[in-house]
């Protein structure tokens, strides 16, 4: 990377965890130019589709770490996560458990800035003054993964530590659908 004074930098973060192939890859530039000439735009509504979208969906299904069935495309990680949550809610209604709609995130977890994705994100700065999180999300406050790492390091007795870290959670007004989860001590062992 070069700034406007001509000074060179090493980009140690791939931009924002993005440029796996570095910068200025010619093949990617060509692929974009080719596609703009060939079919500049088409959408996926009203039973329409097009070759690049279908092909990409098939490629992703082939790469998936577990058997997957369908792919939905969006434009950012935030939108992808919001979509995932909406599908979870849709499913809850389909199976007749409309009360089970919580999205459980983690302290320090980051999932984006759209309304639902930001709600599942566990950093106060993404909530403050935005009136987030929404009530359908729940970021488990304690214990965090850091606590879990420290427990592992200290080889602490989980039975001794669990009441201490679970009390703040359990003393809050119980969110009914979450209750069985929070009562299970293996959450603590697992790192919550």
């Amino acid at each position: 990377m070069t700034d406007d004074n001509g000074k060179d930098y090493i980009e140690g973060m791939s931009g924002l965890w993005c440029t796996a192939l570095g910068f200025g890859n010619e093949r990617l530039a060509e692929a974009a130019a080719r596609q703009i000439r060939d079919l500049s735009f088409y959408h996926g509504f009203n039973q329409k589709s097009h070759a690049p979208q279908i092909e990409l969906a098939e490629r992703l299904l082939g790469l998936a770490p577990v058997p997957m069935s369908k792919v939905f495309f969006a434009n950012s990680g935030s939108e992808a996560n919001d979509t995932a949550f909406k599908l979870v809610w849709y499913r809850s209604n389909a199976i007749g458990t409309p009360e089970k709609k919580k999205i459980i995130g983690r302290v320090k977890g980051y999932h984006g800035v759209t309304i639902a994705a930001a709600s599942a994100t566990g950093t106060p700065i993404n909530h403050q003054a935005f009136d987030l999180p929404i009530d359908r999300s729940c970021t488990l406050t304690v214990p965090t993964m850091l606590v879990a790492q420290n427990l592992v390091k200290a080889k602490s007795n989980i039975q001794r530590v669990w009441p201490k870290i679970s009390t703040p959670l359990l003393s809050r007004k119980a969110r009914t659908p979450l209750w069985p989860l929070l009562q299970n001590p293996s959450w603590a062992l697992a790192g919550f």
């Binding site: 993005c18 990409l56 990680g77 939108e79 599908l87």
Partner: peptide, 18 residues
């Protein structure tokens, strides 16, 4: 859910696999 390196960040795209 995936994004970023899906296009090496060159163009906005993300995907949800279910």
């Amino acid at each position: 859910t995936c994004a970023k390196a899906l296009s090496s960040g060159y163009i906005p795209i993300s995907a949800v696999l279910i």
